[in-house]
Nucleic acid binder design. Structure first.
Length: 378
DNA sequence: AAGCCGGGGGC
DNA sequence: GCCCCAGGCTT
């Protein structure tokens, strides 16, 4: 017996025990899901391996990201870093480079850091205990559970966005899904439903169900192997759950990016290693106050840099982040011999090589716009 | 408990 | 436009 089979404690609320009984037999759910997965499961690159390193990489890349976006990144990453040891020996800049465009760059930093920790602290083999996995940066309870079940075929619950939605509907959870109360219940249900047999197939099955059938909008209940067990379905709430989060207004941030050119070179700077877009490259940026022309907002910056050239307005980029919108004025300053670019922070990069830098999305757009305009002038 | 962290795709 | 996505970390 490799596993403690005692049932998890039922969540409590205000000291009152929550009903530990389920409206159906857990084996009934897992059996249906496993059969369905055998018929309808997707063929994905990371499902052709049991290598924990690759499973781990896929799980990290897939956090808050869609499968279609991940596939090319996953393949390319593994071409450069085919093993844990090679990743551990790589530079962070090279890792960031291969992550550029995927977003949530702390994932790349944590991935790299975790690889170094495993190689440094262990015998080089990938951890195979839930607690050891969770001790690594970037791996929380859900990702640790995914690695345990998918790579090692050992039962451990997962609670990602897909499973969350499936469980909310299956148990007709009508409260705020982001509350700590919801969290306790969902983890409890996830644990109770995870089977001792074939946890590998089960984990992928329930995620696939959420991704292809139990969709956020318009769930396709006719194709769902759990439809006759589903409490939301019974209550006519399938489409109404999970309850939506109250929408918040997102602020608009105005900035100007300066493309300073000296001959063929452009001035680029690397952002601080942590925080927003950590470690990525960009052009110098100045905040633009409301209702002020970007050229005017740039004057103090030009003064400080001792540039006397005129600023040319190239165009405007709009870029949407999850928590704000960026209105980015793209400006160009072309240096002549009178100016001394030395002493400025940052580095000079040829315009041809700049697109190969790990630039973040908004500034990659800015560069494209700049080069497009330059081309038009020729 | 709440805020932070990107970019893309579906509709 | 709006919503969400194979979440985790920090405060």
């Amino acid at each position: 017996m490799a596993r403690d089979t005692t049932k998890p404690a039922a969540p409590t609320s205000g000291g009152e025990a929550f009903s530990s009984s389920l409206p159906f037999a857990p084996e009934d759910v897992s059996r249906r899901l496993l059969f369905w997965y055998g018929e309808r499961g997707r063929d994905l690159p990371w499902r052709r391996t049991r290598d924990p390193y690759r499973i781990w990489l896929s799980e990290i890349m897939l956090q808050q990201t869609t499968v279609a976006a991940v596939v090319p990144y996953y393949e390319r990453f593994l071409q450069h870093f085919p093993s844990l040891q090679i990743l551990a020996e790589a530079s962070l800049d090279d890792v960031i480079q291969l992550w550029a465009g995927l977003g949530y760059y702390s994932r790349a930093r944590n991935l790299h850091q975790a690889a170094r920790q495993i190689v440094r602290d262990g015998d080089g083999s990938f951890p195979d205990q839930l607690e050891d996995l969770m001790a690594l940066p970037g791996i929380g309870r859900s990702t640790a559970g995914a690695i345990m079940s998918i790579a090692y075929d050992r039962p451990a619950p997962i609670l990602d966005g897909n499973v969350r939605r499936v469980l909310i509907r299956l148990f007709a959870w009508q409260e705020d899904p982001r509350s700590s109360r919801a969290e306790k219940h969902l983890w409890y249900w996830a644990e109770r439903l995870t089977p001792d047999a074939q946890p590998h197939g089960y984990a992928q099955a329930i995620m696939d169900l959420g991704a292809t059938v139990c969709l956020p909008r318009n769930p396709d209940c006719r194709r769902c192997p759990l439809s006759d067990l589903c409490r939301a379905r019974q209550l006519g709430l399938s489409a109404a759950l999970p309850v939506k989060r109250p929408k918040k207004t997102v602020p608009v941030r105005c900035q100007a990016a300066v493309l300073v050119s000296a001959g063929d070179k452009l001035l680029v700077m690397q952002r601080p290693p942590a925080g927003l877009l950590g470690g990525l490259w960009e052009f110098p940026v100045v905040d633009v106050p409301d209702e002020q022309p970007p050229e005017q907002a740039l004057l103090p910056w030009l003064e400080q840099a001792r540039f006397q050239q005129k600023v040319e307005f190239v165009g405007e980029i709009r870029h949407i982040y999850s928590h704000f919108r960026l209105k980015l004025a793209v400006c160009a300053v072309s240096l002549t011999g009178d100016n001394t670019p030395d002493g400025l922070p940052g580095e000079w990069c040829s315009a041809e090589d700049a697109p190969a830098l790990p630039l973040h999305g908004a500034h990659l757009k800015a560069l494209h716009l700049y080069r497009q305009r330059q081309h038009a002038d020729d």
